[in-house]
């Protein structure tokens, strides 16, 4: 479904040259939920923007459904980290969710249906007539998610979407995303810096190294599909997995992959180095 090959992005300008990502290769299958973790500043947002067609890679390519991405693909939605700035304050919640649908040339009736359905999915039916700035942070992020859902994307990119909400809201939103993913069969690429979140949400976790960025490791999360905040997070397997990811990230920061016992029986693909 999503194919990233040899992706490299170098920012150039104002006398500074930053190699944000060096060489990233991975795939995400249709209907898969993959989490991407990596140290701060390693180029996660850069990667997501390249995948979303918002940035042109310096080298390498991104394919979606076999087609090369050159601009924002029509069947993809992005949920940005800065939800407050991503929603338009001059539009009510309903209009915010509806705006992208107008570009899709859907009938007004169909648009209304999609908007109502998406807002109901995130439990915000009552807030349809409010302005985004009248809502709490968690509610705003749910509006952003609803907007993405209403768009009916086949691929959904989420960039640290819950980084700025409190722990309780965060747990709710995580369950919301997993629930929606299971219901709707969307392909999701979820960026986070939170290891627990990555293991809890993902079917697979991609660990990025620190800059110069490559894929440090791909880890299959063999937890049951039915997950809940109470039991999954205290399961011994969950602890093992999160410990492993943690070690890998520490190693990534030092720049050396750890070849410990877990790698052999946990990874479906060996690290690319």
């Amino acid at each position: 479904m999503l194919d990233v090959r040899g992706l490299k992005k170098v920012y150039e300008g104002s006398g500074r040259r930053v190699e944000a990502v060096r060489d990233l290769t991975f795939t995400v299958d249709a209907g898969e939920l993959v989490c991407l973790v990596g140290p701060s500043g390693c180029g996660k947002t850069t990667l997501l923007k390249c995948v979303g067609g918002l940035l042109t890679p310096t080298a390498g390519e991104v394919l979606i459904g076999g087609r090369r991405v050159t601009g924002p693909p029509p069947d993809m939605a992005v949920v940005f980290q800065e939800y407050g700035r991503s929603l338009f304050p001059w539009m009510r919640v309903r209009e915010n969710v509806e705006l992208p649908l107008k570009q899709k040339k859907l009938t007004a009736a169909r648009r209304r249906e999609l908007v109502a359905d998406a807002l109901a999915s995130v439990g915000l039916m009552d807030a349809a007539g409010a302005y985004p700035w009248q809502l709490s942070g968690g509610m705003q992020q749910r509006v952003a998610i609803a907007r993405a859902l209403a768009y009916e994307p086949r691929v959904l990119l989420m960039d640290e979407p819950f980084a700025a909400v409190d722990a309780q809201t965060r747990a709710d939103l995580e369950d919301l995303v997993r629930g929606l993913w299971r219901q709707r069969g969307i392909t999701i690429l979820f960026v986070t810096h939170d290891i627990d979140e990555a293991v809890y949400l993902g079917e697979r976790v991609l660990i990025l190294s620190s800059s110069p960025t490559v894929v440090q490791e791909q880890l299959k999360v063999d937890l049951p599909a039915d997950r809940d905040q109470l039991h999954t997070r205290v399961a011994p397997r969950f602890a093992e997995l999160r410990t492993h990811v943690y070690e890998q990230i520490q190693a990534a920061k030092r720049g050396t992959p750890v070849a410990d016992r877990l790698v052999k029986d946990l990874t479906d693909t060996p690290p690319p180095q």
């Binding site: 918002l54 993809m76 992005v78 800065e82 570009q103 768009y151």
Partner: peptide, 23 residues
């Protein structure tokens, strides 16, 4: 961020002028 959001949802130049830049 607003501009990138609009672009990612496929809003063309005119739609972005109307819905993002103008407001």
């Amino acid at each position: 961020v607003a501009e990138e959001t609009a672009r990612s949802y496929g809003l063309g130049t005119w739609a972005r002028v109307r819905h993002v830049l103008w407001p």
